[in-house]
Write a protein that binds this DNA or RNA. Structure first.
Length: 426
RNA sequence: GUGGCUGUAGCUCACCAGGUAGAGCACCGGAUUGUGGCUCCGGAGGUAGUGGGUUCGAGACCCAUCAGCCACCCCA
């Protein structure tokens, strides 16, 4: 047991797992690039007020989950609990919003919560934010893009899209009042958490897990009755676009997102394979936020995906990625090692697509070959006494059942060229 | 923040009215000395999460603490 451990809720991603992470991230970058989205990088620390204003003063995130601290000026700073606020701040600060923008970011977020499966205190999100398009076609594009990512990752089949609209701020306010009135009449029958939320965030009661509370909700006024006409049209058009694209979704009128800034479209991608933390990606529209941040009123829409949860999901589906070199070079003595090093160096220049690992630390051929096998390399390349004399090199297939061969340098280059082409076909 | 379960070698686990620890896998080495994967043999590795307490004696019992897991809560 080592003297130091990682801070609670903050985990090390070990070399075994990083290939899967890199695959996940690279796939995301590919999909985003294919849709014309550009990366934005913002600081991990912002003023506490920025998050409080955007996420909502009475949300759990702001009330008790932020890593906040005074800096040396006594200004209150916080580690970002999510990425939208920072992105909007940057977009306003640098005037990115004068024309439509499509941006994404990927990185760590921090929330002081009790850790459990799929929930950590430092976790990673891929966030996507778009500015300047008010219509539902922007929401549809985001959702289609998600689906492409899921498909490339091989997890599309185990994800469900839940969709709802929460209307305009005004519609929501009057609905909130109606719901609160109704629930107040049933106050004593509500579960404890919901009683508390009645004052703080009544809409959150809608997705309470309490059975009795849900029963009470069955007769509660519904959001749909209070929806403004524009939100309704927006929602209908979005559904139409999704239908057209063959993107199936579940309408969930009780889906309410936990952050205060949403309006109209809200959605979550969920899975039943991850236990209680079922949401893998969530987002929606937040048309008021840019204006609140002092920018010109600009519609906006986006989502955030939890990378740990996606990794977990892929692992439970036995989807994996491995990083193995193409060539593992072994050598018999100091002289051969030197030659091998130069050759490895040359190969990496001339065949940059190949992964070349040279054995370090000496040892018998036997132990070197063991290493070669464990590295997962496709081929072992041998520099021994014989090769030193002949000027050739020996190649042994470690995965395929092929006979070992000894090649001249010219033959070697032809071979490596073919190997490089083969590995690039993936 | 609340509740339940758990904490023994790198990993998965076992033993034991309480008498100072074992297995499998992994790791290292070897099986007539230039070749891995299979098999066989050998080896290294643990102050039993940490700190107290009960006891002649505790990994086993009690308390605290830390961490993990599961659920609530919350959300990605």
């Amino acid at each position: 047991m080592s003297q130091y451990r990682a801070i609670r809720g903050m985990v090390d991603v070990l070399p075994d797992e990083t290939p899967l992470w890199q695959m996940l991230e690279q796939t995301a970058r590919d999909v985003l690039a294919a849709h014309g989205y550009a990366e934005i990088r913002t600081p991990i620390v912002e003023s506490t007020e920025l998050f409080a204003r955007s996420i909502g003063e009475v949300t759990d995130i702001v009330e008790k989950e932020m890593y906040s601290f005074p800096d040396r000026n006594d200004d209150s700073l916080s580690l970002r609990p999510e990425g939208t606020a920072s992105t909007v701040r940057a977009a306003v600060q640098h005037n990115l919003i004068q024309s439509p923008q499509r941006v994404w970011y990927m990185g760590p977020m921090f929330r002081y919560e009790r850790p459990q499966k799929g929930r950590q205190r430092q976790f990673h999100q891929l966030g996507v934010e778009t500015f300047g398009v008010a219509g539902p076609e922007q929401d549809a594009e985001l959702l289609l893009m998600c689906r492409q990512w899921w498909t490339r990752l091989g997890i599309n089949d185990v994800l469900t899209l839940e969709l709802n609209t929460i209307g305009s701020p005004e519609a929501r306010a009057s609905y909130k009042a109606a719901l609160t009135d109704y629930l107040r009449d049933h106050f004593d029958s509500l579960d404890e958490d919901s009683q508390r939320r009645l004052d703080t965030n009544p809409l959150r009661i809608l997705d309470s897990k309490s059975v009795t509370t849900q029963a009470i909700l069955d007769d509660a006024p519904s959001m749909a009755e209070y929806l403004d006409e524009e939100s309704q049209r927006h929602h209908e058009r979005l559904c139409q676009l999704l239908d057209m694209a063959g993107l199936t979704y579940t309408s969930n009128p009780r889906l309410v997102r936990g952050l205060d800034y949403y309006n109209k479209t809200v959605f979550e991608w969920t899975t039943d394979k991850l236990g209680a933390q079922a949401t893998v990606c969530g987002g929606g529209r937040y048309d008021m936020m840019v204006g609140q941040f002092g920018g010109k009123a600009t519609p906006a829409s986006g989502f955030a995906a939890g990378l740990e949860r996606l990794v977990l999901l892929m692992q439970t589906l036995n989807l994996d990625a491995i990083a193995a070199p193409d060539l593992y070079i072994v050598s018999s003595d100091e002289n051969a090692f030197g030659q091998a090093m130069l050759e490895a160096d040359r190969i990496r220049v001339e065949f940059p697509g190949l992964g070349v690992v040279q054995h370090l630390g000496g040892g018998s051929f036997k132990s070197q070959f063991k290493r070669a096998d464990k590295s997962g390399a496709a081929w072992a390349m041998v520099f021994g006494a014989e090769e030193m004399v002949s000027g050739k090199v020996t190649l042994k297939a470690l995965r395929a059942n092929e006979e070992q061969m000894t090649l001249s340098r010219e033959e070697l280059d032809v071979f490596l060229g073919q190997l490089e082409q083969l590995t690039n076909e993936y």
